[in-house]
Design a protein around this nucleic acid. Structure first.
Length: 226
DNA sequence: GGCCAGGACACCA
DNA sequence: TGGTGTCATGGC
C-alpha cells in the first residue's frame, strides 16, 4: 500500500553508501549507548527472549523477579517449575509461552554446552544460528540478539523498528523485504565489527522508541530528517 | 479506556 | 505460502 507520508520522512535517503552516515547522525543525537542491559551473558540472552514484543520496562521487572529468586543461572532455571517461572516473568507479557521458551533454551544450554555460554563462543555463528532457530520460540531476531549481545559475535539484528525506519525513509516497505535481505543490506555495507553492530542496532531502537512509533506524531522531529 | 511494545508460532485455506 | 489468530501485562 502506498504511503503518502513517506516523502515527508525521506529527506535523508538511506543507501548502502550512507549507512554509516546514518549511524553517525544517530550517535551524534543519542551518544554511544551502553546496550544491552545485563550483568551476564545469560541475563542478556534471557532478556532477548523476554523482550519479544514487549517493552523493556516490563522485561526489567521480570528479570528483577528472577534475580530476587536467585534464578539467574542455568542450574537454577533447570530445576524451576515452568508454572513458577511463568509467575515470576508475568510482567513481561505472554509469560506462559516465554517460560516454555526459557526452559527450552536452558535445556539446550545444559545439554549442548555444559551450562556454559562461554563454550558457545568457539562455535561458528552460522552453526549457532541454526541451533538457536531450531529451538521452539527462538526466531531470527531473538537468535541474532543472543549471538550479538550475549556472545559478542558480529551479526546484525533486524527488528520492527529497523523495518519501520527503513520504510519511512523510502528504502523498503515494512513487509516486502525478508529478514535476511535487510540483514545483508547492513552487513554488506558497514564494517563487520561487534561494537558497531551492537551500537547501530541500539541507535535504531532508540530513534524508533523516540521518533518512529507506529503512530507517528513525533516523526517530524526525527534526527534523520536533518 | 484504548493502543501498543526491542516476536514467534499454530492453524487454515 | 500467506494471511490471520493467539499469547495476555503494564505504561502512556
Amino acid at each position: 500500500m502506498a504511503d503518502a507520508n513517506i516523502t515527508d520522512f525521506g529527506q535523508m535517503k538511506i543507501s548502502a553508501n550512507n549507512l554509516l552516515q546514518m549511524y553517525q547522525m544517530l550517535k551524534a543525537r543519542f551518544g554511544f549507548l551502553n546496550w544491552w542491559p545485563g550483568d551476564t551473558p545469560l541475563e542478556i540472552a534471557l532478556g532477548a527472549i523476554l523482550t519479544q514484543s514487549t517493552s523493556w520496562k516490563n522485561v526489567e521487572k521480570a528479570i528483577a523477579n528472577l534475580k530476587k529468586g536467585n534464578l539467574l543461572s542455568v542450574e537454577a532455571l533447570s530445576g524451576v517449575e515452568p508454572s513458577y517461572l511463568a509467575e515470576l516473568i508475568r510482567p513481561s507479557l505472554y509469560y506462559n509461552q516465554k517460560a516454555k521458551k526459557i526452559k527450552g533454551f536452558i535445556s539446550y544450554l545444559a545439554n549442548k554446552y555444559d551450562s556454559d555460554l562461554e563454550k558457545m563462543k568457539v562455535v561458528s555463528t552460522a552453526v549457532l544460528r541454526l541451533e538457536l532457530l531450531d529451538l521452539w520460540g527462538i526466531g531470527q531476531e531473538t537468535a541474532d540478539s543472543i549471538i550479538l549481545y550475549a556472545l559478542d559475535k558480529p551479526i546484525f539484528v533486524i527488528d520492527a523498528y529497523t523495518r519501520r525506519i527503513l520504510s519511512r525513509h523510502g528504502i523498503a516497505s515494512v513487509d516486502d523485504k525478508p529478514y535476511a535481505v535487510l540483514q545483508h543490506f547492513f552487513q554488506d555495507n558497514i564494517p563487520q565489527e561487534v561494537e558497531l553492530y551492537k551500537d547501530f542496532h541500539a541507535q535504531i531502537v532508540e530513534v524508533g522508541k523516540n521518533y518512529c512509533r507506529r503512530q507517528r506524531p513525533l516523526c517530524a522531529a526525527c534526527p534523520l530528517k536533518k
